[in-house]
Amino acid sequence: MSLLEEQTQYGMLKGIHKLSRYPEGTLKDCTLVVPNTIHTPYGDLVPQYEDDGLRRKFTYSLSFYANGILKSISLQEKTVFNTAQGDIAAELVTFYEDGSIHRLFPLNGKLSGFWAEKNEYELEPVLHFQTKQVTFDKKIIGVSFYPSGAVHSFTFWTRDTLEVELPFGKVETRIGLALYENGAVKSLEPRRPTLIQTPVGKILAYDVEAIGVNGDINSLGLYEDGSLKTVTTQANVITVKKPNGETVTAAPSLHMSHFDDEVKRVEPLIIRFEDGNVVLPNGTFSLTNCTFTVGLFDPENVKISNECDGC
């Protein structure tokens, strides 16, 4: 096996097994198979160079932006990073293009028939976190930061939840929690259908199809002052009566599953509040000039939409 070398602004990389480059020729990412030490603002770091064959992912040891700034590093051993939330030991770290930390992952395992989420979870340490609105001790998949160093979001394990106090009540949260830079709650993902008081009435907030990639974007969103910004529901219908007497109805929609013709799936209704208006898929309506009625969505009385009609 012929190994390569590459000079970077973090030092000479040796023992490169494979690499890729940007069109202009600069190093994009590489996999190392011998020990290297790179010199960074966060201290000397040792990129991953061994494949344990079972637990750890072994793809790229290092990734770079086109300007040569470090984009991510998979570490050979857990390494401690000092953050606004204290010291956090991580196996994988990603960075912004200005060099500041973007995300920290305490573990970087691969799930397979030999290594399950349960095994990975058992290795995870319990960490202490404290922000403007939440304080908790919990295992997390990852934490992201703003370039300033303030926490941007937490991503939780599927088995874990967190109760968050909001201006309109407590909400049990799954998947993730995002914050504004000042620490105020920006968005979260309700664990179960949760009744939320909104400017148009009480809505059961929940998104059964929420994707738990990370905690950055969630279905229940707030403005920085704590007022409601967005809410997703699969249980409610909103009827709007306009000043001229015309009525408009906004509701979730019913579709055939992409994977099973016998299964129906509900596409949720997303509601947004902004500038004294409620924004629905079929229009923007004044909260002052219109009246609103909230009802329950009955999928039995809805025509199923086949997204492949005519294809």
Rank of each mutant, 00 (worst) to 15 (best):
E122V: 02
T155P: 02
A150K: 09
R174T: 14
Q197W: 03
A150R: 08
V213P: 14
I196W: 02
I203Q: 10
L195R: 14
G201L: 15
E172K: 14
L179D: 09
T155C: 08
Q130R: 15
F136D: 08
S153D: 06
I217M: 03
I175M: 03
E163F: 10
L123S: 12
K132M: 09
P147Y: 00
V134H: 02
N182E: 05
L166M: 11
T131G: 15
F145R: 05
A178V: 15
I203W: 11
T173H: 08
F145Y: 06
F129W: 07
G201I: 11
D207I: 01
L123W: 06
P167E: 15
A150N: 10
F136L: 12
H152W: 04
K202Y: 07
E165I: 12
G176P: 03
G169Y: 01
L166D: 00
K202N: 11
K202Q: 09
E181P: 04
G183A: 07
A184K: 14
Q197T: 13
E124K: 08
R174G: 13
S187P: 07
A178G: 09
N182Q: 07
G215W: 11
D137T: 00
P199A: 02
E189D: 12
L179M: 10
V208M: 04
K132I: 12
L162C: 00
L177E: 05
Q133R: 11
K186V: 01
T173E: 05
A210V: 00
P199I: 04
H152E: 12
L127F: 07
S144P: 00
I175C: 05
P147H: 05
E122C: 06
E165H: 12
V171H: 04
S153C: 11
L188H: 04
I140R: 05
F129S: 03
I203P: 05
L204I: 14
R192H: 03
Y146M: 02
V171G: 00
S153E: 08
K132G: 11
E172A: 06
V213E: 15
G142D: 10
P199R: 10
R191E: 14
T155I: 03
E163R: 04
K186T: 03
T173K: 07
V151A: 03
G201S: 09
H152N: 13
F129P: 01
K132Q: 15
K202W: 07
D216F: 08
G176K: 01
S187K: 08
Q133F: 11
L179F: 14
L195G: 06
G215F: 09
G183H: 06
G201K: 00
E172Y: 02
G142A: 06
F168P: 10
G149E: 04
D137Y: 07
E122I: 02
L204E: 14
T131E: 15
D216Y: 09
G176I: 02
Q130G: 09
F129E: 00
E181Y: 07
T161E: 06
L123I: 11
Q197S: 11
V134T: 08
P190C: 12
E181S: 09
Y180R: 10
S187D: 10
P193N: 13
F154H: 12
K139M: 13
V143H: 13
Y180A: 02
R174S: 15
L166R: 02
G215M: 09
S144R: 05
K202E: 13
